[in-house]
């Protein structure tokens, strides 16, 4: 039983998502401001629940948001928590934000405080 690659295109209110189960490389990018975040994230959370049963050697999550609403933050927190249950926890999260984007930097710091995983906050120059 192998999981298929996830690739969801971005919309006005939901981010681009790429999850690769064989390389363990996960990316979430764009804006996540949907009023019904669980509708968007729950299928991804289910996918990750299957993934952790047979994860890649290491898992890296790159997160790069423009906008993130609180409803999406809850789902994201849930997703990080599930990844945190991978035995040996070969999981790291890279929280990318535009250098001058204080809001997204601060959002990363909030997650860093409460997520029990290696967490890097990285300011970038461009998109």
């Amino acid at each position: 039983m192998s999981l298929t690659i996830v690739h969801i295109k971005p919309t006005e209110t939901t981010p681009e998502v790429k999850f690769n189960p064989s390389t363990g490389k996960f990316e979430i990018k764009g804006r996540s401001i949907t009023e019904n975040a669980s509708e968007f994230y729950n299928p991804l959370i289910d996918w990750v629940k299957s993934y952790i049963e047979n994860p890649a050697g290491s898992t890296t999550v790159d997160v790069y948001f423009d906008y993130l609403n609180t409803s999406s933050s809850k789902s994201l927190m849930h997703l990080f928590n599930i990844l945190g249950t991978i035995p040996g926890k070969e999981v790291s999260i890279n929280w990318l934000h535009k250098k001058d984007d204080e809001a997204m930097k601060e959002a990363g710091e909030d997650f860093n405080t409460i997520v029990n995983l290696p967490f890097n906050i990285v300011g970038t120059d461009s998109n």
Partner: peptide, 12 residues
């Protein structure tokens, strides 16, 4: 905020 966020993930 941080407390509420971590609790929210436990019980939606």
């Amino acid at each position: 905020y941080q407390t509420s966020l971590s609790e929210a993930a436990m019980s939606p």
